[in-house]
Design a protein around this nucleic acid. Structure first.
Length: 566
RNA sequence: UGGGGAAUAGUGUAAUGGCAGCACGAGUGACUCUGGCUCACUUAGUCUAGGUUCGAAUCCUAGUUCCCCAGCCA
């Protein structure tokens, strides 16, 4: 990390941290934490939060804890704990020894609760959930005191002990903080601290049957760990007075909670609930479907951690809830992939071309550059022969203006190979073009004309005989509109699903150099886009995902032409 | 409706009383053995109305719009 990166206050949160470091508010320490609840997979929205947490710690020689906020046994599973760590490691996050679980603090939290009861700040309440709701009042009306609000300390202590001992059924009693039932902030109207849940906890088993609520637990977790800056999203702003109240009443280490706007992306949804629905209703093929904004999905799609981090850096940090254009993410992706992806030639929709003046049965090896952006990537050789495939899109019998590619009588370059000229179109009975006959110019071997003759286009190609069959999965945005959640009454985001978000092409051809590819390998298929080998791919059946297309100026021209012809 | 927040080009974000800048997008052109990359240029903004000030995106007043809160979820 450069000195500038370490010292610059790029946003309002880093400015606060920098100021605290200057004044020595926390003794020159920075401790942050990323506290996911293990009840789902991480998505790119989380990336904004954990990049901030881990980077701020690193930039200040501090530490960032990974803490699983496992305070609700009914939703949480070990599977998610493993997956979250796997995703975070992939993203390059380093928590060192600092892996913690909120549930490990349950004894300490219990002791703190007793302390609050003894100080008269908490009481056991026998109201049902429904009654509690009624007592809470509304946005405009104050709440009413619970009839159990003024129990003696002794009785509260006794009942609380018996709650913990398992004497009462689920939902029969709660421990509540005694604050102010008429507070305009609903969170301060005697919030529940503990509820009774007789359930198996994925780590604690049956040790506990009372579980702390978020507001009670979270500040304690931060405090116990010596966190200095507790960074969270905007919806917790209303909870900060409660966070502060608990820690003040306890008189313990009191971190500063700072809120920021969460990350939204166009053409996708981000809430766990909606993502779960996409999976459960079969709109996608699991949590790691390459169309999903989950980190697992993005990873399988071929995204790099670097590009996600770069996007987060560019998005910045503010308190305005906006939506980032997915074009920014894709720009960061292309920028990184352009630098690091080896180039390869693949033909998605093959059109056979016979080079009529090329010797039958002859094969030669031609040298191709692996990555023009990276001289150290070297070269490879690719086989050329009399019959090749080109892209169907690269030939037009009756080319419109500005179409530079192959057409009857026109000469183009085959990349790294020869100039060819189209001499004949072969059609089937239905009039479909099934084959092209071309001639080549032997003097242009390697792709250049010795006398400096120019061509307007360079096409990618593969040798028919030597190329490998492959399946390619093309992805588009999962939804057809920028904000899929913006739907009318009685409709939901699945109404905006893009029916073309996945297109499988099974008869592609790819150059033989990729024969040994393994899942996760990334390539640029020249002139098409960036692709990566899917986890379903094998030696006998090659399968690639399109990560993102190249910028496509021709597609834009076509779109313009279509509009002007209308 | 009570409370808590937020409003700067199409989008995201700087400027903390002193030249409204950057990035993405869009458009035009140059270059090119990828219609890629790269480069150049263009486009376009302070929510509204008052006020303070030599000077306001920034301070004050009033308003407008948007987001969050009535789980024994986090």
């Amino acid at each position: 990390m450069s000195k500038e990166e370490r010292t610059s206050a790029a946003d309002f949160i880093r400015a606060i941290v920098a100021e605290d470091m200057k004044t020595g508010k926390w003794g020159g320490r920075v401790v942050t934490r990323f506290p996911p609840e293990p009840n789902g997979y991480l998505h790119i929205g989380h990336a904004k939060a954990f990049c901030l947490d881990f980077d701020i710690a690193a930039q200040n020689d501090g530490v960032c804890h990974l803490r699983f906020d496992d305070t609700n046994p009914t939703a949480e599973e070990q599977e998610y704990i493993d997956a979250i760590q796997d995703d975070l490691r992939w993203m390059g996050c380093d928590w060192g020894e600092h892996l913690y679980y909120a549930s490990d603090y349950f004894p300490q939290m219990y002791a703190y609760a007793e302390q609050l009861i003894k100080a008269g700040h908490a009481y056991v309440c026998d109201l049902t959930a429904e009654q509690t709701r009624q007592h809470r009042g509304s946005l405009t009306e104050p709440g009413k005191d619970s009839p159990y609000r003024n129990r003696s300390v002794q009785e509260n202590l006794d009942l609380f002990h018996r709650m913990r001992a398992g004497e009462f059924p689920d939902g029969s009693r709660t421990l509540k903080a005694k604050i102010d039932m008429s507070s305009p902030n609903l969170n301060m109207r005697d919030p529940v601290m503990y509820r009774i849940i007789h359930a198996h906890h994925h780590r604690q088993g049956r040790t506990w049957c009372i579980y702390p609520m978020y507001d009670w637990a979270h500040g304690l977790e931060d405090s116990i760990e010596g966190v200095t800056h507790s960074l969270c999203s905007l919806e917790f702003e209303n909870h900060r007075p409660l966070y502060d109240w608990f820690l003040d009443k306890l008189g313990v280490h009191h971190p500063q909670q700072i809120e920021f706007a969460r990350f939204n992306l166009t053409y996708t949804v981000m809430s766990k609930r909606k993502l779960r629905r996409l999976v459960e209703e079969g709109h996608v093929n699991g949590w790691d479907d390459p169309r999903m904004p989950t980190l697992r999905g993005l990873r399988r799609r071929g995204y790099t951690p670097e590009s996600i981090r770069e996007c987060m850096r560019r998005v910045g940090m503010a308190k305005f809830t906006g939506t980032t254009d997915i074009a920014l993410l894709e720009h960061c992706l292309r920028q990184h992939l352009n630098k690091c992806s080896p180039r390869v030639m693949a033909v998605l929709r093959p059109l056979k071309v016979v080079i009529t003046n090329y010797p039958d049965g002859q094969t030669e090896q031609l040298e191709a550059v692996n990555n023009p952006e990276d001289p150290t990537a070297g070269t490879r050789s690719i086989p050329f022969s009399r019959e090749i495939y080109i892209e169907q899109d690269d030939f037009l019998e009756d080319p419109p203006k500005k179409f530079f590619r192959l057409a009857p009588g026109r000469e183009v370059r085959l990349r790294y190979a020869y100039f060819i000229t189209c001499t004949e179109i072969i059609k089937d009975a239905a009039g479909r073009i099934v084959e092209l006959h071309c001639t080549y110019d032997p003097a242009t071997r390697g792709g250049d004309s010795p006398e400096g003759r120019k061509v307007k286009a360079t096409l990618h190609w593969v040798s028919a005989e030597h190329s490998l069959p492959a399946e390619v999965r093309l992805y588009e945005h999962l939804f057809t509109c920028e904000n899929p959640e913006d739907v009318g009454e009685g409709r939901n985001c699945t109404d905006n699903l893009n029916p073309h978000s996945l297109q499988v092409i099974s008869d592609c051809r790819i150059e033989p150099s990729v024969a040994d590819t393994v899942p996760g390998d990334r390539f640029q298929f020249e002139r098409l886009g960036y692709f990566c080998t899917d986890k379903d791919s094998s030696k006998t059946k090659l399968i690639f995902n399109r990560t993102v297309t190249l910028r496509d100026t021709w597609a834009k021209i076509q779109k313009q032409q279509r509009q002007t012809n209308r």
